[in-house]
Design a protein around this nucleic acid. Sequence first.
DNA 1: ATCGCGCGTGAATCGCCAA
DNA 2: GTTGGCGATTCACGCGCGA
Lengths: 394, 394
Amino acid sequence: MPKVEAVEALSRLASRSAPRASRAATPDALPLDTILRGDCVAELSRLPAQSVDLVFADPPYNLQLQGELRRPDESRVDAVDDAWDQFESFQAYDAFTRAWLLAVRRVLKPTGSLWVIGSYHNIFRVGSMLQDLDFWILNDIVWRKTNPMPNFRGRRFTNAHETLIWAAREPNAKGYTFNYEAMKAANEDVQMRSDWLFPICSGGERLKDADGHKLHPTQKPEALIARILLAASKPGDVVLDPFLGSGTTAAVAKKLRRHFIGIERDRSYAEAAQARVDATHPLPEAALAPAPSAREAPRVAFASLVERGLVTPGTLLTDARAQVKALVRADGTLSLETAPGLGTVGSIHRAGAAAQGAGACNGWTYWHIETGEGLMPIDRLRAVVRSEMAMAAE
Amino acid sequence: MPKVEAVEALSRLASRSAPRASRAATPDALPLDTILRGDCVAELSRLPAQSVDLVFADPPYNLQLQGELRRPDESRVDAVDDAWDQFESFQAYDAFTRAWLLAVRRVLKPTGSLWVIGSYHNIFRVGSMLQDLDFWILNDIVWRKTNPMPNFRGRRFTNAHETLIWAAREPNAKGYTFNYEAMKAANEDVQMRSDWLFPICSGGERLKDADGHKLHPTQKPEALIARILLAASKPGDVVLDPFLGSGTTAAVAKKLRRHFIGIERDRSYAEAAQARVDATHPLPEAALAPAPSAREAPRVAFASLVERGLVTPGTLLTDARAQVKALVRADGTLSLETAPGLGTVGSIHRAGAAAQGAGACNGWTYWHIETGEGLMPIDRLRAVVRSEMAMAAE
DNA sequence: ATCGCGCGTGAATCGCCAA
DNA sequence: GTTGGCGATTCACGCGCGA
């Protein structure tokens, strides 16, 4: 991946020339479960490379509002018009985006992944930059709001969603975490879709200052962050948020027994986030037991079934209709006894593929063994081995 | 808007240097209800400037598939791998996007608007380019699919949506069509949101070739296009689709009594689209009667109510609670009789605003008149005048 | 204690025309 | 180009208060 290497070189260059504070001239050890106060690019450049499992980022949206907005009853809408959300131009916003994404790439593990949330004002810039920097987009996710603000002037559709992008560090990245089974189980046993429905953050969850005003203009709901962490990280992983704000990511990470690193420039936000984290307690470990994942079950070679005596060499395996036959050899390979593929010797998967003239085949479900009560897929034997292994591990 | 002017200059330059076919060296008259066969940039450059009300575009998604995809049962997924969907790089895709967007901008009326649909593979490029070219994004819309294709590998979330961008020709564009009332009525009388739910195009609606294979890999559902046309155009408007494909936009436009112009490069798609259009018939006009829109109703001055004798000078108007009072003057202005604002003379709106200490007020709904059966908003009297005007117009 | 009502409010690129 | 007048325009949810 020459392009990735070029990007990494740029990233190193950027971090070398970045202004250093007194804290350290070389990357610190990983400051786990800490809120760092400062500019995120500068702070990221002090962290060790390839040390973070998951990044969640809620960057400024660059809203560019003109004038005030009033409701039909003449009350004023308290809009996001903070200085930190103002950029001079798309060019300036792109430069900002490029800088923090490069800094994030450096600290991400090769198996790590990145989530960014935004609206139509900024998300297209972020998505394009991710592609330009050779991140690899895995999904775009839509957060549908149950209770969005209406369009008061009746000139557009109600802006009822925000967009998240989930990306791996680079093309062909292997080993990023996706807890497929847990997501599926959480979605009535069908695959979790790319459109999620959550209320906006309000009520008791919304942090307020002493005067009862909202502490942060864009506090995200914990349920949204929790789904991200449950989908794309494991307990004990390191989760980093370069724009921590009111601290939702840190609080949810602590609750879900992930480590967090938060970066926040604004002192009052950082202090409120710290207080919030201090008041948050991890859930009981039992509540976080990972959902059973077929993918993470120990790999069992068919040969080990032969070794364990569950299948005797010389046995004939068949397909579900008992028309294709294959002989089990002592080394755990099969030898096809029927056309097409007659004489083929190979793994259960290759033999099954050859028997069907297909490019691939899951031999565990294709091949069956004769029992007193009819044909049984050999996958059932694998299940036996796995349960034995689980008992032995305790 | 100097930036817009610069973009328009570029656009003119692009159209001047575009290769010309024999058809014409200067822009033709608008070829209404026609399918043009050819490259969309070349064909667009032959159309008169500022002549189109609405553009719907479903450009190539640049899917960049690597190898084939199979379902768990080994059946092959018939993916979009057509030549027209392949681009060498993001730069090449961006250049393509820039070219057709500039060509579209030239033919769009200043009051026109543009819709583009895409997935995460291309929509970020399109959205960024729209912003770079100084289009003005009005909404991003999510098409949620009721029946998306599952993720067969279990490595990502089910990709269950596509994204549409709705944009005006330039910042501060006035007069783009948005049929707010119709959308609200279609959504159980609450504002239409930015997330829409439709099934993918399948079954009888899906065009098939002689062998029963799907004719076009990305045929869009008519319901999706219909909502767009119903939301953002009027009967008789000109709707243009630069990537017509199987002709959905043309067929829906004909059905909804909009004019269409379709551009399609591929001969077999263009022919199928033409046959489809020929077999499509417009809906009865009554079915397309626009939903009543307060915004478009004829303006009625309060003074005309006085002139017509519906309100007598000297009458006292009150707010809904009968606490604020104002005297109707012979010229149709009001004079406030109560504090705050006591003595203020002005229009029903200014008097209402003064009475409330607000910056603005809709006097038609604020002021009430005493009838035998209680207070009635003066808006009801306006309705009487309007219905008289409608009868007189017939 | 419970229910119903009124009020506040949320990442918003939020009007159009004539003078 | 700017200004000012006319007049059109909101949904879901949480909380507090009073019956």
